[in-house]
């Protein structure tokens, strides 16, 4: 198997364990496991659902909003779909699924990215922060969330989590020094309601307020 070559791995005990258990289940499958991928898949389609799932899923460890997860995911699951459909963290939005709107913006190891254009399995060992994990906890909101409310930096609210995650990153990156700079570095977050004027005002207030973001 390719993933048993030196330098290539899905280096998880659980996965190996799952595979071994699974291989024991059926001699037919033992044979299949060593045939090339496409054949396996074609055959798997005719097999019991659980067996197919064992083939398809790989283990994944990551932290989201400080909570550690050990998961089994299909490799084709994006980080966005993992958050929304499996972890039920629906604050991160799907607005295009192609990296063209910014609604899915989250922080991975502190950097803002589009969660729709990365696979969940590519985040192995990483720390993900979503809108649900931005505030310090309790009833308290993050200063950027407070500023968005105060300046009415949204209307329908759908792009808002992405705007806020991006806005926080924009300040952390040092790209919030002027209105023009904020607009350029926030251009990856589309607001179809057109609340841009108010979003920029919110970011400027947080930036000028000197609070730690």
């Amino acid at each position: 198997m390719a993933d048993e070559q030196p330098g290539l791995s899905l280096d998880h005990d659980e996965h190996s364990q799952a595979r071994r258990t699974f291989l024991k289940q059926s001699s037919l499958l033992t044979a299949l496991a060593f045939t090339p991928g496409p054949v396996v898949r074609a055959a798997a389609a005719e097999l019991d659902e659980k067996v197919a799932a064992a083939f398809e899923k790989v283990p994944l460890k990551l932290a989201v909003n400080g909570k550690r997860y050990k998961l089994q995911v299909e490799p084709r699951t994006t980080l966005l779909d993992l958050l929304r459909e499996q972890l039920h963290l629906t604050g991160t939005k799907k607005g295009c699924d192609y990296g063209q709107c910014g609604a899915c913006t989250v922080h991975v190891d502190g950097k803002r990215i589009n969660s729709c254009l990365t696979l969940a399995v590519m985040q192995e060992g990483k720390e993900v922060t979503t809108i649900e994990g931005l505030a310090p906890g309790g009833d308290k909101l993050h200063p950027m969330q407070e500023a968005f409310i105060k300046h009415d930096g949204f209307q329908c609210g759908y792009c808002t989590p992405g705007q806020i995650m991006s806005a926080v990153a924009c300040i952390r990156e040092g790209h919030a020094d002027s209105e023009g700079e904020i607009r350029e570095y926030m251009s990856g977050n589309i607001c179809r309601c057109g609340a841009y004027t108010n979003i920029v005002a919110a970011i400027q207030e947080v930036k000028n307020g000197g609070q730690r973001v």
Partner: peptide, 25 residues
């Protein structure tokens, strides 16, 4: 999106060999 196998490479040589071996990778 189709299903695919997913592997992580930790050494360039392994990555290159894996790619060279599989025209659909």
């Amino acid at each position: 999106m189709n299903q695919f196998q997913y592997v992580r490479a930790s050494k360039p040589k392994a990555a290159i060999e894996a790619l060279a071996r599989d025209p659909n990778a």
